[in-house]
């Protein structure tokens, strides 16, 4: 019985792994193939044409833009989301549902629509096509995710620990460093990962308010149908920071300081 269950769970795990690994493997193979037509399992011709195309100056600029916007957006989202999540998590509002509902509203429509609406205002405030506009548009989409994940970290348990810090004489910065941050670490890591990934892969709002600024998802998409080798190589480029973020967040959640 136990052996059977072990076998079953191994098969399940293998299938799951395959489901994740196969598309990734296809991307890797495609990125390093110059010719790979359908019935063949192995490419007819390996080559670096896709990689060369993908590492053009425009896609590198897009990579830099996307990274900059994601980091700025995430920083702003954590700075704004922290107090918001604390207030909501500690049940200090009479109508927390209403506040959160308003916050989550932009997620209910496609991001392109939200950003198009925002563009109307950016035009009127002279922000159109600026980096700030792009960060603000991403922020509207990232903030609800960050708040909802951070929410889980705030509440009576954290407050109790912070009170303990207070009565034992910890100053505010010391309390933040020794009590709050270590207690919030897993939540913070999860929120940061999610926030980064949402901004990093955001397409619609980057298109609507970017003003032609190259962003990695925008650069990637046209190649998907027309040139799969370049698309695959770009996808791998796309994957790198995301995997790095995932690894960093996983370490922060499960490994001791």
């Amino acid at each position: 019985m136990v052996a059977e269950r072990t076998l079953l769970s191994r098969v399940t795990a293998a299938l799951l792994a395959a489901a994740f690994a196969l598309p990734l493997a296809a991307l890797v193979v495609r990125a390093f193939a110059d010719e790979w037509r359908a019935p063949a399992v192995v490419p007819q011709q390996f080559g670096l044409r896709g990689v060369h195309e993908a590492f053009s100056s425009m896609s590198l600029e897009a990579f830099g833009n996307s990274l900059l916007v994601a980091v700025l957006t995430l920083s702003a989202a954590l700075a704004l989301g922290w107090p918001a999540a604390r207030v909501l998590g500690e049940r200090r509002l009479r109508r927390p549902g209403l506040i959160f509902g308003v916050l989550a509203l932009p997620l209910l429509v496609p991001s392109y629509a939200t950003a198009t609406g925002l563009t109307e205002w950016f035009l009127r405030f002279g922000l159109a096509d600026s980096l700030l506009a792009l960060v603000l548009a991403h922020l509207v989409l990232v903030l609800p995710y960050v708040v909802v994940v951070l929410l889980a970290g705030f509440g009576p348990a954290l407050r109790d620990l912070e009170e303990m810090g207070d009565v034992h004489g910890l100053s505010r910065p010391a309390r933040l460093w020794l009590v709050t941050l270590p207690a919030l670490r897993p939540t913070l890591a999860a929120a940061a990962l999610l926030g980064f990934l949402v901004s990093w892969s955001e397409y619609g709002s980057s298109l609507a308010v970017g003003g032609g600024r190259p962003m990695l998802p925008l650069v990637l998409l046209p190649f998907v149908g027309s040139d799969p080798e370049v698309a695959a190589a770009l996808a791998l480029l796309f994957l790198l920071p995301a995997v790095a973020a995932l690894v960093a967040a996983t370490r922060a959640v499960w490994e001791p300081l």
């Binding site: 009170e163 303990m164 009590v179």
Partner: peptide, 16 residues
Amino acid sequence: PQRRRIAYVFQEPRLL
């Protein structure tokens, strides 16, 4: 509370 120098043992240990 930080400057009262009053120690408090809570109902739960509240350890870090």
